[in-house]
Design a protein around this nucleic acid. Structure first.
Lengths: 132, 132
DNA sequence: TTCAGCCTTTACGTTAACGTAAAGCTGGGT
DNA sequence: ACCCAGCTTTACGTTAACGTAAAGGCTGAA
């Protein structure tokens, strides 16, 4: 009962609104490894989840190479202490970057608020003028 | 009293920890327009502020072209209604992107928390083992 | 069978954001 | 006078992440 849905590359590309070329490229870079039936690629739920993670990583400004190493860290079962330490260090590092982004976004949001309210005030002024 | 500090390109590059090449490139792309004294560039506070904005924009994933149009929108004194509407549309658009990023970051943070706590638990287990 | 629609591989092209080298001016210190 | 650090321009090189043909295989409907 572990979900047996299958997807073609075209279905996935439509679903995520990206090109098939991109999906093949991610595979070429070692981020995906879909099953094959004959020459065609068959994607399952785990591939779909991976793609989702890839796209989210990209939106956050990670390179495909970075995303790949994150996958590898996540995939290798973390049994040795050294591996775990490495993982912790990396998560901390990423966390710092994300916090920086949060700050930036907050600052920018505030500025957008300023601009927006000033714009709206000016629009109201223009409206008043039009009544004459 | 409006602050008369001057900076050389070297000073600014050290301050922001970027190369002089980058700063010249931003100028080449129309994002900066420093004063000249002879052949050398002289930067003032407003240039420094601009650079800060450029770098923040970049951290948020904006292209230099996008940053430039934002600057231009910000610079043109917004007097016509059409301009104001454009500005409002753009701010809304950007706000949507930023909100998406916030979601992504939040999701990722949670996952990092999960990974981290699992790592720490495993480390503790390893410690216990070492006592035998 | 022929066609359309989807898939495949191979391979060269493109864009953004610089890196990097080459070659030269220039002001201050010794 | 000379040098050096820091500035300048010009121009070609580089990397990431695809875009865009080109040429062909497979499969189901007409």
């Amino acid at each position: 009962m572990t979900n047996n849905e299958q997807y073609s590359i075209g279905e996935l590309s439509k679903y995520f609104d990206i090109t098939a070329r991109s999906i093949r490229f991610y595979e070429e870079q070692g981020l995906l490894a879909p099953e094959r039936q004959g020459q065609s690629r068959i994607y399952h739920l785990k591939d779909k989840v991976r793609l989702k993670l890839i796209l989210r990583g990209k939106r956050l400004g990670f390179s495909l190479a970075e995303i790949k190493t994150l996958f590898e860290l996540y995939d290798t079962n973390p049994n040795s202490a050294a591996q775990l330490e490495t993982m912790l260090a990396l998560t901390d590092q990423k966390r710092a970057v994300l916090n920086q982004q949060l700050n930036d976004i907050q600052t920018l949001m505030n500025e957008l608020d300023d601009v927006e309210s000033r714009c709206k005030e000016e629009l109201i002024e223009l409206q008043k003028g039009n009544h004459l």
